[in-house]
């Protein structure tokens, strides 16, 4: 029972990390109609930049903040230099162009930081555990990830639904020319949104680094999971991404933790130990297939798309 609660928290934490990635992806897609495979590269860059800045400044928080600002800047530069030219092209062009960017960034990171990964050490007060209700001890840092990600989700909601910028973003999504005609610099707005998406992905990467270290290509597998989230949640919908990412995070984590044991009840232990891990890694894809059969548009499709 204690294990179950702990795994639920882990799942929630993983799901929220996925949400940070998926939110950026779905915003960029919903607003600019751009498929960005290189989104995972910002996840990786955020981690490497923050770890480097933290080592330079000697401060965890200063490093993280500088790292995120740098990721934001890189995102905006990428938009200005390359992706701006891809808006309005077909999706195959987006896929190819951003696939090229992934190769570029992976190799750039290898060139700058070398093939080995980087560590980001937690300050002592975060590297503890707290006691939750019922006497479960849970790492403070993982709890911190949950809190930060929830705060970011709230911030996104307020930004998109309650501010003038958010109003412009939504207006730009439904009619780009009209917003431009009303005297809004829509290109600048797009660049800002893209930078924001990059910074969100960077934040997810940074938060994962103390647990898993920064590595080349770290953003790719999680990016595909973020795609699964978007397919389940419905493309362009931040709310759908939020619910779907928590769902996927929970199913994946709990499946990995308990499926092998469940199989042992039914199968011989040898068969279970081979089938268990393989099947639990397939679980979320099954989930995606089910959603595709029942609701091809995703669970929360954006109205009018």
């Amino acid at each position: 029972m204690l294990l179950l609660i702990e795994q639920c928290l882990n799942g929630l934490q993983f799901g929220l990390l996925l949400f940070l990635l998926a939110a950026g992806l779905t915003l960029v897609f919903g607003i600019m109609d751009l498929v960005n495979l290189a989104h995972g590269s910002f996840y990786m860059l955020g981690a490497f930049l923050a770890a480097t800045f933290a080592a330079w400044t000697g401060s965890f928080f200063l490093g993280v903040v500088l790292g995120l600002l740098a990721t934001l800047a890189v995102g905006m530069v990428v938009d200005l230099v390359a992706l701006r030219r891809l808006y309005g092209r077909n999706h195959l062009d987006h896929v190819l162009g951003t696939f090229g960017l992934i190769l570029f960034f992976n190799e750039l990171v290898r060139l700058i930081w070398g093939p080995a990964g980087l560590n980001l050490t937690l300050p002592a007060w975060l590297n503890t555990s707290v006691e939750l209700l019922g006497g479960i001890r849970y790492p403070t840092y993982r709890l911190g990830i949950i809190v930060v990600a929830l705060a970011v989700a709230l911030f996104l909601y307020v930004l998109v639904m309650r501010t003038r910028i958010g109003m412009l973003i939504r207006a730009g999504a439904s009619n780009r020319e009209m917003v431009g005609a009303l005297g809004i610099n829509i290109k600048l707005l797009y660049t800002l949104v893209f930078g924001l998406g990059a910074a969100l992905a960077g934040l997810a990467g940074v938060m994962q680094t103390p647990i898993l270290t920064a590595q080349i290509g770290m953003g790719e597998n999680i990016l595909i999971l973020a795609f699964v989230v978007i397919i389940i949640g419905g493309i362009g919908s931040v709310r759908g991404a939020f619910i779907a990412s928590i769902f996927v995070g929970l199913v994946d984590t709990i499946g990995r933790a308990f499926l092998p044991d469940l199989f042992k009840l039914v199968l011989s232990s040898a068969a279970a130990s081979t089938a268990g891990p393989a099947l639990s890694s397939m679980l979320i894809y099954f989930l995606m297939a089910v959603v595709l059969v029942l609701r091809p548009e995703g669970l929360f499709p954006v109205a009018g798309k």
Binding site: A82, L96, G97, F99, G100, L101, I102, L103, F104, F105, E107, L108, L111
Partner: peptide
Amino acid sequence: IIVGPLFL
């Protein structure tokens, strides 16, 4: 690092 931008 050369091939990537080439795709673009």
